[in-house]
Design a protein around this nucleic acid. Structure first.
Lengths: 139, 139
DNA sequence: TTGCGTGCAAAGGTTTTGCATGGCA
DNA sequence: TGCCATGCAAAACCTTTGCACGCAA
């Protein structure tokens, strides 16, 4: 409930990095590198634990996507509201992630709620397929 | 391209189990147990390697979903056509997987193709959210 | 001082790889 | 006979856990 108490430099640092580039999906490894680039040294345990809290608070979204390299994390806006919600398009060939704000998708979300009693979580929902660069070579 | 050459009992066995229950999402562990139940002993390496081939041939779909327990595999119909294609709804609370055949979703797929130049792979696409049983307690 | 956050190290689980054996054509 | 599939074992990878230390209030 509380807006998170960042008592420490490390905790604030992780949050700030995610917030500084809300369109980016960070891996744990990338976060570690960015932190190091800031001259701060943070253990991986701390990164994982801090991310877990941020995810529980709704401030960060966790994606577990195929393709290896581990889970990815993206800033989602504080407290569960704020930043614009959007869907994601993920290319199963090049693993690129695109954002999608789309009325058609919203209509589908509404339909699923009414007809299938299923509540879509927009920020977690991922459409898999081939992006424009990769579709030509789809096998 | 070739319809896969199952030279061995083990290979055919894995394929048959997946085919015998196309609506089910098997984990590697479950496949091992089913194989054992048939009186056949198959190493996990073989299961992984056979699944990799089946996935590459489009005969099987691989899902890497959150929630632990490893990846899940589902029969998708031989050669990329055949079995009815469908989307999936996954509950991020109870990890239940529901099938979805839905005109609204197909419309969205068409829209994404035209407007965003993105080709949806229906069989791989997963909508995350809360199912009817879990939505009440969403936090 | 008290308590939470942190860090190192080790464990845990899933998946991949190396190399030798075995079965089918 | 030749080749591909198989199997055991070990490695690799990502993530979690245990326990002690350090910083902030």
């Amino acid at each position: 409930m509380s807006p998170a108490n960042y008592n420490t430099r490390q905790g604030k640092c992780i949050s700030d990095i995610l917030k500084s580039d809300p369109s980016r999906h960070f891996t744990v490894e990338e976060l570690g590198l960015r932190i190091a680039a800031l001259g701060l040294s943070v253990g991986q345990t701390t990164i994982y634990r801090r991310l877990e809290k941020l995810v529980n608070q709704g401030e960060v979204i966790k994606y577990e996507l195929p393709g290896g390299g581990g889970a990815r994390f993206q800033y989602a806006g504080g407290g569960g509201g704020g930043a614009a919600e959007h869907y994601h398009l993920v290319c199963t060939r090049c693993n690129a992630v695109e954002h999608l704000e789309c009325g058609h998708a919203d209509e589908l979300t509404e339909h699923l709620k009414k007809a299938h009693d299923f509540i879509i979580d927009k920020r977690k929902t991922v459409f898999f397929g081939h992006c424009s660069r990769c579709k030509a070579e789809s096998r």
